[in-house]
Design a protein around this nucleic acid. Sequence first.
RNA 1: GCCCCCAUCGUCUAGAGGCCUAGGACACCGGCCUUUCAAGCCGGCAACAUGGAUUCGAAUUCCAUUGGGGGCGCCA
Length: 497
Amino acid sequence: MTAEKIRVRYAPSPTGFPHVGNIRTALFNWLFARHHKGRFIVRIENTDVTRTVEGAVEVILDGLRWLGIDWDEGPEVGGNYGPYFQSERLKFYQEAAKRLVDQGDAYYCYCTPQRLDEMRAEQMRLKQPPGYDRQCRQISATSHILKFVSGSRRVIRFRTPLEKKTTFKDIIRGEVTFENAKIDDFILLKSDGYPTYHLASVVDDNLMKISHVLRAEEWLSSTPRHLMLYKALDYKTPQFAHLPILLGTDRSKLSKRHGVASITEYQKKGYLPEAMINFLALLGWSLDDKTEILSRKKLIENFSLKRVSQTAAIFNKDKLDWMNGIYLRKLHSADLSRQIIPFLERDLPLGVKRPISFEYIEKITPLIQERIKTLEEVTELTDFFFANELDYQPDLLMVKKMNHQLVNKALETSLLKLRRLSAFDEKSLEAMLRPLAEELELKTGQLFGTLRVAVTGRTAAPPLFQTMVVLGKDRCISRIKMAIAKLKETPEETNEN
RNA sequence: GCCCCCAUCGUCUAGAGGCCUAGGACACCGGCCUUUCAAGCCGGCAACAUGGAUUCGAAUUCCAUUGGGGGCGCCA
């Protein structure tokens, strides 16, 4: 493979949000291009006027940008083989279709959608393979003229050879053979003058000098059609590699039905692009028998189609979460703080003042960095740092077999001592509170547990002393007072656990 | 129904005839650490779909069967 000749493309159709399977295909194309110092091209396949979704192109491009998948040619950046929107390339497809008709490799078909529907229904009823019955394949020249003059809508179909086989070598799957007779006369040009995928992709891949077509396995069975087109149009065929598809947990092809499948959703939930890339790369590709964490650079360095597996993979969210946690922990504190703020500002109660202070977050970040798997989780983990009043069940204060009286005493004593504490740092807090536990004849876990609830409103939180330092003396004192008050509201007898 | 692809722990995977009493990771279960929760460390559970064939020897090759997936649109 000559380096400068490698040209691959990602060809999404703007019919909705790009799901992770789709993005994985983009990633593999991109990695392949970058590894071989080739070109990565984005081409928008908007040949279905009825299904095009407004704004979808932007969402797709934003998704790529977010992941750091940059393209050398395509929307916004242009290139020498544009335009990169198929809707702007209609003349190429129409020309090619016309040429095929002239050559006798394609023909006009006047069958109505209704007739085709009925035909298919009948075929299904008879348990026959659905497919065009080739009614218009033999129409005489005069009938053509008559129909054309009468204004009948028509499409152009490919005149599929009825004999022989089509064989090709897939880079990932090896030799694959189809019988031509099993392939029906598929449509090349629709009645609205737009091409179908088959025609458009073949024409464009040729014009854009695509060297390798890396696409999902779902395209495998239409590859012989494409090969026939390449041949009929006398184009040089690219190499094909059909990537294993991504499955949902129900083992069916990943789609919107499987919940959070859109790449945008992962961004919103606070996954890091680096983690996403790393995880996606490992879905169908591996470096060796142990490496899991790979930087973008390493991925590019090592990516190879030889190590792409042939088996469909199920998207395993647990592993993604784990991996995202790894990347989150690797971040510098300041960097993490910066990334956290937008999530807090989005999710914290409206009562919390914006903008949120970076200096304040800088203090909180170290307390949660090893406790989060996604950025989105930060809010619920830290909201007590922003709340004025804590809302919790008073019996939470009763940690590990403590009773009402004990808790009260613990809180009162702590309050007293805390007030007298001059230096409010981790060290002094520990120096004061550890002996206090002993003095109260409580286990450290009991005293600290109670204080934790008093100060944070929950039983699981970041380490107590650090948390208290971040909250500051005043807030700790007032929260302990609140706890004492809360305790008074609850009847003693019921708290004998 | 027809065509095509695929088949190692629950999941992602390593394995290209002897290195495999099958390795790693996630999840799960124990333990350690510990003021809770995490993180970290240590340990455990857990797989070559089945049947033939080739071979001195098969997870690895071949053939069936079974299972799963994909495709069969004026969608991509």
